[in-house]
Simulated scan of single mutants.
Amino acid sequence: MLETAPLVAMIHAVPTAGRIAQTAFAQEFPQARVWNILDDRLLDDARTAGGLTDTLSRRMLRLIAHVMDGGAQGLLLTCSSYGEVVDTARRLWDVPVLKSDESLFKAALVGPYQRIAVVASAPPAVPAAVAQLEALVPAVRPDRPVDVVTALSEEAAGAEPEAAARHLADALHTAGGADADAVLLAQYSLTPARDPLAALLNVPVLDGAGAAARELRGLLTPAIAS
């Protein structure tokens, strides 16, 4: 039996992603008690290693085990570079565990978009995000193909929202993705650039934090009610 206020853990690789996710949960799932875990070496170490290694995967699994032992009733990994670890976690624990952008990708695929651009400022986030998106296509929209284009702008990392938006827009133009029907932000830390980027491109720009909060609310609310 879940308590009235379910305990939702979030594991972050950067403080900015944590703040953005907490804001989203406050707006979309205020009933939740949020437990934040930050390892601010996760992203840098993945960059140095050239991607997700077995050692880094085990490190993330230890963090997940920590929150599960602490009674977490739902878990969100806000770092897209570690999304593959969620598949293992789901086999080990009978608790809802979400990848950072999984809810976002589901919502985008249900929508009317035919050409979707995925943008990021950290290199490991690009293949991780595309892998998640493409893995969902057969289940979510098997009868409608989707054209995915990616763009990376490391200059957008840490920039002010308007500057980050310009960097991302430039990267999209260079990658041939400026004609996309929608743009998906592959990192929570890029969320402040959402509205300026939408204004520059004149297309919807979608972020993952709110979508994840809404999905966990839907998953946990029936259990609360029972």
Results as ranks from 00 to 15, higher is better:
residue 145 P to K: 07
residue 127 P to T: 07
residue 127 P to D: 07
residue 206 L to K: 12
residue 203 V to G: 15
residue 173 H to N: 06
residue 212 A to Q: 02
residue 173 H to Y: 07
residue 145 P to I: 05
residue 197 L to V: 07
residue 139 A to V: 12
residue 143 D to W: 13
residue 161 P to R: 05
residue 192 P to E: 07
residue 189 S to E: 00
residue 205 V to Q: 10
residue 168 L to Q: 06
residue 125 A to K: 11
residue 133 L to D: 11
residue 189 S to W: 05
residue 164 A to E: 01
residue 207 D to S: 15
residue 150 T to F: 00
residue 181 D to Y: 06
residue 206 L to M: 15
residue 194 R to N: 04
residue 212 A to G: 14
residue 182 A to T: 12
residue 201 L to R: 05
residue 131 A to D: 06
residue 173 H to Q: 08
residue 212 A to T: 08
residue 183 V to M: 05
residue 135 A to K: 03
residue 190 L to I: 04
residue 203 V to P: 13
residue 171 A to D: 06
residue 134 E to M: 15
residue 194 R to A: 12
residue 186 A to G: 07
residue 132 Q to E: 09
residue 199 A to S: 14
residue 207 D to M: 06
residue 212 A to D: 00
residue 160 E to S: 09
residue 203 V to E: 15
residue 190 L to D: 00
residue 197 L to G: 02
residue 133 L to F: 13
residue 162 E to W: 01
residue 131 A to V: 10
residue 182 A to H: 06
residue 129 A to L: 04
residue 193 A to G: 06
residue 158 G to C: 09
residue 171 A to Y: 05
residue 174 T to Y: 02
residue 184 L to Q: 02
residue 207 D to I: 01
residue 199 A to Y: 10
residue 182 A to L: 14
residue 151 A to P: 07
residue 123 P to W: 14
residue 125 A to W: 07
residue 150 T to H: 01
residue 189 S to G: 07
residue 207 D to R: 12
residue 130 V to W: 07
residue 170 D to A: 13
residue 212 A to P: 09
residue 146 V to G: 12
residue 185 L to W: 13
residue 180 A to V: 00
residue 180 A to K: 01
residue 189 S to V: 03
residue 204 P to L: 10
residue 159 A to Y: 00
residue 203 V to M: 13
residue 170 D to Q: 09
residue 205 V to N: 09
residue 159 A to D: 05
residue 203 V to Y: 15
residue 160 E to C: 03
residue 128 A to S: 13
residue 157 A to K: 01
residue 202 N to S: 14
residue 127 P to R: 02
residue 138 P to T: 08
residue 126 V to F: 01
residue 146 V to L: 12
residue 178 A to G: 01
residue 206 L to R: 14
residue 166 R to C: 10
residue 151 A to E: 07
residue 159 A to R: 02
residue 177 G to R: 01
residue 186 A to Y: 02
residue 164 A to N: 01
residue 164 A to W: 01
residue 172 L to A: 00
residue 211 A to Y: 08
